[in-house]
Design a protein around this nucleic acid. Structure first.
Lengths: 144, 144
DNA sequence: ATATAAAAAGACATTTTTATCTTTATATTT
DNA sequence: AAATATAAAGATAAAAATGTCTTTTTATAT
């Protein structure tokens, strides 16, 4: 479904949502260790998110990545869009170039409702919302 | 979501469901042209399906691929399982190794219902069912 | 029997994704 | 101002997915 990179991005952003703010920046090494993903690849990933202003960063000693208040209000589809693009979500399940409601592929009507509701879930819930559930101990972003 | 190969497999199988039977075998070239996908890659794909007995084939002059009555009763998840495996459907949306109902990832509860219903749709409808809708002109397996 | 047409099998090539390493730029601290 | 820690950028490497080509096997038709 998602690329590894998008998965890493989501986990890293949720980690930042829980543990960082403007006063507490976090480096790639810590994040990579805590959510158990390759550090150099994560660095690349966070750079992309930072360039897109979905997260923020400061260089130098005591620098690192963090989410500000606005960043917390973004949603997971913003993250996915930045890393993978939305093609995956929009394109036809069996790869027809012009599949649409008017000219549906053989399984269009079976797949469409799930796509739509999934997108709705990923856009109406904020990063903060997901982070809060994890902070309450109701869900996890790492599991060994 | 699905790999290209799975998408090709589904389209090819639906093509065979509509156009083939034991008396009317179809070669890779015809299928590839009709559903607009690379012929050699399709050949590989059909060989895998054939090996798994999800479709059938005969070598030699007038040989080719076809679906028998039993094959028509199989479902699309069988096809996907043969080509991609089911890992994609079972694994955690954000890549946690031990994500489960008891230890859910941060978005487990948001994603789970869609996965389950999608799997249900892909298993309860047969290949024949999808083919019939296409034969009625209500859906397509190629679209230029 | 022989020739032929098709799938099956296997080797090869390309592209994309994933991952790592090195250098550069920049804030911060001393 | 200098040293340092960190992100940013860029180059390289490895693995997986996608796609192509060649050879072998086998059923059919002649």
């Amino acid at each position: 479904m998602l690329s590894n990179q998008s998965k890493y991005a989501i986990r890293a952003v949720l980690y930042l949502a829980i543990h960082s703010d403007v006063k507490n920046k976090i480096g790639t090494k810590e994040i990579a260790e805590k959510i158990d993903i390759p550090a150099p690849f994560l660095a690349k990933t966070l750079q992309s998110l930072s360039k897109a202003k979905l997260i923020h960063s400061i260089k130098g000693p005591n620098g690192g990545f963090y989410l500000n208040k606005e960043d917390q209000k973004k949603n997971l589809l913003d993250i996915i869009e930045c890393i993978d693009g939305l093609r995956k979500f929009n394109e036809c399940f069996i790869g027809l170039p012009r599949c649409s409601d008017e000219n549906p592929c053989a399984i269009h009507h079976v797949v469409k409702p799930f796509k739509e509701s999934l997108i709705k879930e990923l856009t109406t819930n904020t990063i903060e919302d997901f982070a809060k559930e994890t902070q309450k101990g109701k869900s996890f972003i790492f599991l060994k």
